[in-house]
């Protein structure tokens, strides 16, 4: 199973003008440890950088972080750009402090799913949760 997982390539980055680097490093480490191939484009990444990296590396999924509250503005149109680039069916995950101020999570999640994301995660999500979801979404059976 470790062999199979290695074939999954993830593009990871922090979108917009956001310089929060800590969570990005945690995710890179956790996904690498879990056996994925991680293409980390780092902080302050534009939508174009995410799409280009995914095209170039033939990635299976794009994982977008946003910690500074402007996620809603920064993420709008990412799915459309993926479609334009010919990778319209790539998995898009997003997580972090996605909106300004404290809002009901169900509403926020709904908003991001409607934007074309496959999964959205609230603040405080542990990396293992996304790892488990990736394995499930790509049809790997979990051992426990």
């Amino acid at each position: 199973m470790v062999e199979e997982k290695k074939q999954l390539t993830l593009v990871l980055g922090v979108i917009g003008a956001d310089v929060h680097a800590v969570g990005n490093r945690i995710l890179e480490y956790a996904f690498t440890e879990a056996g994925f191939k991680v293409v980390n484009i780092g902080v302050m990444a534009s939508q174009e950088e995410f799409i280009n990296a995914a095209v170039e590396t033939n990635a299976n999924a794009i994982l977008v972080s946003s910690l500074y509250g402007h996620g809603e503005i920064d993420c709008r149109g990412l799915r459309e750009k993926a479609v334009e680039a010919g990778i319209g069916d790539i998995k898009l995950y997003v997580g972090g402090n996605l909106v300004v101020g404290k809002q009901d999570w169900q509403a926020v999640e709904k908003k991001f799913l409607a934007m074309g994301f496959d999964r959205a995660y609230p603040p405080g999500t542990m990396p293992q949760e996304a790892i488990d979801d990736l394995l499930m979404d790509f049809g790997f059976v979990q051992k426990c």
């Binding site: 800590v22 945690i26 480490y29 956790a30 440890e33 405080g124 542990m126 990396p127």
Partner: peptide
């Protein structure tokens, strides 16, 4: 000791 420990420490104060 592993990166999980680092992650736990970052989340600790919250």
């Amino acid at each position: 000791p592993s990166f999980q420990m680092v992650i736990d420490d970052i989340y600790a104060i919250g």
